Amino acid sequence: MNNVLSGTPFEDAHIPYLIWWPTVAHESTYRQLVKVQPQMLPQIIRACIYAGYKDLFDELLSKVEPDLLLLREAEDQSDIYFRQALDRRTQSSGITPQHPADGDGWKLNVSGFFNGSFVNVQKFLDSSAVGTSFDGQYDGLRCNASVVEMNACLPDAWKLSIDDEKTVRRIAYEEWPPLDRSADART
């Protein structure tokens, strides 16, 4: 997830499931994704659990029926807040959490270390835009290229031009970028 929603909405056959790993998006990105792709609500709720986004989780919880995938994600987190909220929702609504559909069992095991969310559009990138650490699952190594990935995925209208006075601009869907393509051309 790289905080760029310019390709949404997705066709049903192309809706991604794993939208919180290895990079968790900014909370405002998930909030906007609910608006443009409401059928992704289960993935967004799971991303909120994984990222610890309690406010957005609380806003959306009444709109989803907890399943075993959400419960498993909540169990895997050290913060019991999410599991308790899902349990209350399940009990109050009389919902019986469902197993994944046939062929979707893999969704039970899709957690791991994540990179931070990057929301700054940069005019210039250099080698400092890629970082490494030793806490990853690939022989203990992890590479974080989220700065480069996010900037590479931007529509041209969102990129900072050479003539732009700013060297960095923040993507936060409450403020910017404009979602209307005609507005993109004006920024």
Rank of each mutant, 00 (worst) to 15 (best):
D79E: 15
G140R: 07
M40R: 02
S62T: 01
Y81K: 09
H99G: 00
P66T: 00
A101G: 01
Q43Y: 03
H14N: 11
V147L: 03
F57C: 11
Y50W: 06
T167F: 10
E73K: 11
P22N: 10
S92R: 02
I162H: 12
E174V: 07
E59N: 12
E149M: 13
Q122K: 14
T23V: 12
D58L: 15
D156E: 15
S92D: 04
P177E: 09
Q91I: 09
V168K: 06
R181D: 07
E65Y: 00
D139V: 03
E11A: 11
L41V: 00
A51K: 13
F113S: 07
P178I: 03
L61T: 02
Y53A: 07
P155L: 09
R46L: 10
T8Y: 10
S93I: 00
S133F: 14
P16W: 01
D156I: 07
L108F: 10
L33W: 13
Q32M: 15
E59I: 09
F57N: 13
V24M: 05
T23W: 14
E75Y: 09
T132W: 07
L71E: 13
K159I: 10
A74N: 08
L70C: 02
K35N: 11
H14Y: 11
R169Y: 05
Q84N: 09
P178V: 02
D184Y: 11
W176I: 08
F118Y: 11
P97V: 09
I162N: 10
V64S: 00
E59A: 10
R169M: 10
A183E: 15
E175T: 14
T29D: 04
P155H: 12
D163Q: 12
D79T: 13
I162C: 06
L56S: 11
L86Q: 01
T96N: 11
S146H: 07
S28H: 02
S161E: 14
W21H: 14
Q122L: 14
W20L: 04
W158G: 12
K107T: 02
T8S: 05
S128A: 13
P42Y: 00
R186L: 15
I44V: 14
P97D: 06
V4P: 05
N3T: 04
I95R: 04
T132K: 13
L33Q: 12
Q137V: 08
R83Q: 09
S93H: 03
L33V: 07
F114R: 13
G136Y: 06
P42I: 00
R181L: 07
C143K: 12
E174K: 12
W106I: 01
I95S: 04
Y50C: 07
P9K: 01
R169D: 06
Y17S: 06
Y17R: 05
A183I: 04
A13V: 07
T8E: 03
W21M: 09
I19S: 04
Q122N: 06
S127F: 11
Q77K: 15
L71W: 08
Q91K: 09
S146K: 04
T23E: 11
R31C: 06
L68S: 03
E27I: 12
Y50I: 14
G136M: 06
G7V: 04
L70H: 00
